[in-house]
């Protein structure tokens, strides 16, 4: 589903990704683990298409198409979903308005009919209830005044509504207590199916107890330095990243 080849990327002229190779087939979950500053967030932003993240070499192919040639919104419409590490507060834009605009933009691009206000509300309420997102949160401005746990649940709600094929979870476990982590991670895990794939970017192993990966990659110094099975995550939890930091430089 996703093929990253020799990906180099810079931010403000500084090279952060230094040649990443990574293939995630449909139906699989891959974890990318690494120390702070290894390029984990840069990888997620490059895949989602954030301005200012300059790809200097390499390619990313998504469902056979050149992902890097697509605008940010086009990637989202084609089914790429980034769950943000820090969901953005947008005062003045109500959740319902935001979610409906997004859902209908994606539906239009798939050639599906747009949902009217009533149809959308019915769907949003159902999904919100499953994820423990309150009616009140739906009415409020996007992420505004939400707790850390509420923000991550709200990300999961967006995922449930947009039904993406490829999900990038950028440190979804950060800022979550163990109960909130369980709710969010189980919701994401329930989303797995043979047509979908996932990249779980994380510093810590604990989220992988709920979303068990098919493969674990270690990112250090802008490169994948080791790849293994799910046991690699447990090993990293014991040994830490120190062994890789010198190796990458």
């Amino acid at each position: 589903m996703l093929e990253i080849r020799n990906l180099h990327a810079s931010v403000d002229g500084r090279e952060i990704l230094k040649g990443i190779d990574l293939t995630v087939p449909a139906g699989e979950v891959h974890a990318v683990m690494g120390p702070n500053g290894s390029g984990k967030s840069t990888l997620s932003y490059v895949l989602a298409g954030r301005d200012g993240y300059q790809v200097t070499a390499g390619s990313v192919t998504y469902k056979g198409q050149d992902l890097l040639a697509m605008k940010t919104e086009e990637r989202a419409r084609q089914g790429v979903f980034l769950a943000f590490q820090y969901p953005v507060e947008i005062p003045g834009v109500t959740g319902v308005n935001f979610l409906k605009t997004a859902v209908n933009a994606v539906r239009r691009s798939r050639g599906e009919s747009e949902l009217d206000a009533m149809q959308f509300l019915k769907l949003a309420r159902k999904k919100a209830k499953e994820l423990g997102v309150s009616e009140e949160m739906l009415r409020r401005a996007v992420n505004t005044g939400f707790s850390g746990g509420e923000k991550k649940r709200y990300e999961a709600l967006q995922m449930a509504l947009l039904e993406p094929s490829f999900m990038i979870l950028d440190e979804t476990d950060s800022g979550l207590d163990i109960d909130a982590l369980k709710v969010v991670a189980e919701a994401v895990d329930a989303f797995r199916n043979p047509q979908r794939a996932m990249l779980v970017i994380t510093h810590y192993q604990r989220i992988l107890d709920y979303i068990v990966p098919d493969k674990v990659h270690v990112l250090a110094g802008g490169r994948i330095v080791q790849t293994g099975g799910k046991d690699l995550a447990l090993e990293l939890e014991r040994t830490g990243y120190a062994q890789f930091v010198g190796q990458a430089a």
């Binding site: 989602a48 919104e73 997004a102």
Partner: peptide, 15 residues
């Protein structure tokens, strides 16, 4: 706000 703009676009909303 560039981060808000990116967040909305990352959900499929055109610029």
């Amino acid at each position: 706000d560039e981060t808000a703009l990116f967040y909305l676009r990352a959900r499929g909303i055109d610029e």
